[in-house]
Simulated assay, not measured.
Amino acid sequence: MTTAPTAELPAAFAELRDAFLEVPERDRLQLLLEVSYELPPLPARYADAPELLERVQECQSPVYAFTEVDDAGVVAFHATAPEEAPTTRGFASILAQGLTGLTAQEVLDLPDDLPLMFGLTKSVSLLRLNGMAGMLTRAKRQVREQLAARTV
Rank of each mutant, 00 (worst) to 15 (best):
M1G: 12
A11C: 05
F13Q: 08
A14S: 13
E15R: 11
L16W: 05
L16S: 11
A19E: 12
L21M: 13
P24K: 05
E25P: 07
R26H: 12
D27N: 10
R28P: 02
L33E: 05
V35Q: 02
S36F: 02
P40I: 03
P40D: 05
L42N: 01
R45F: 08
A47L: 15
A47D: 14
D48S: 12
P50R: 12
E54S: 12
C59N: 09
C59S: 07
C59H: 08
S61T: 13
D70W: 09
A72C: 10
G73C: 04
F77E: 01
H78G: 08
H78M: 08
A79T: 07
T80Y: 03
E83T: 10
E84P: 00
E84H: 10
A85E: 03
T87H: 00
R89D: 06
A92H: 07
Q97D: 06
G98C: 10
G101L: 09
V107H: 09
L108Y: 06
D109E: 14
D109F: 07
D112F: 02
D112A: 13
D113H: 15
D113G: 06
P115V: 04
F118R: 02
T121R: 12
S123A: 15
V124Y: 00
N130Y: 11
G134M: 12
G134H: 11
A148W: 04
